[in-house]
Design a protein around this nucleic acid. Structure first.
Length: 104
DNA sequence: CAACTGACGATAG
DNA sequence: CCTATCGCCAGTT
């Protein structure tokens, strides 16, 4: 079962460039469902492996990671820092520098 | 088919 | 800043 929202979200996520991040709400909204933030989480889970999505470039609305230390937080943080995205002391990214915009 | 679940978002206190 | 709660929607049980 594949909804257009799902496909669209995948396409968007795959387009996130290195050194940039996007939010769940942003992706969901741009994919056609302003409130599909939860589906984004599902998509990342079910497709990050199948579609090799840069799941680590997706953070919540605060620019923070939803994980907890030991649950992947370190991994995501590490991956992003490898791409040039720096986290502050609150494990947040600087949207002014790293927020990716679908329109450029 | 009904209830539960979830890598969320926004609002309220 | 933090927790609590509602709303959204698809996938599971």
């Amino acid at each position: 079962m594949v909804s257009s929202f799902y496909i669209r979200a995948i396409e968007i996520i795959k387009k996130i460039p290195e050194g940039k991040v996007a939010t769940y709400g942003q992706i969901a909204k741009y994919a056609g469902d302003p409130r599909g933030s939860r589906q984004i989480a599902r998509i990342l889970h079910s497709s990050s492996e199948k579609h090799e999505l840069p799941w680590h470039r997706v953070v919540n609305s605060n620019g923070k990671i939803s994980f907890k230390p030991g649950c992947g937080l370190e991994l995501q943080k590490s991956l992003l820092e490898s791409e040039g995205v720096i986290f502050d002391k609150d494990n947040k990214v600087d949207f002014k520098k790293y927020l990716w915009k679908p329109f450029g």
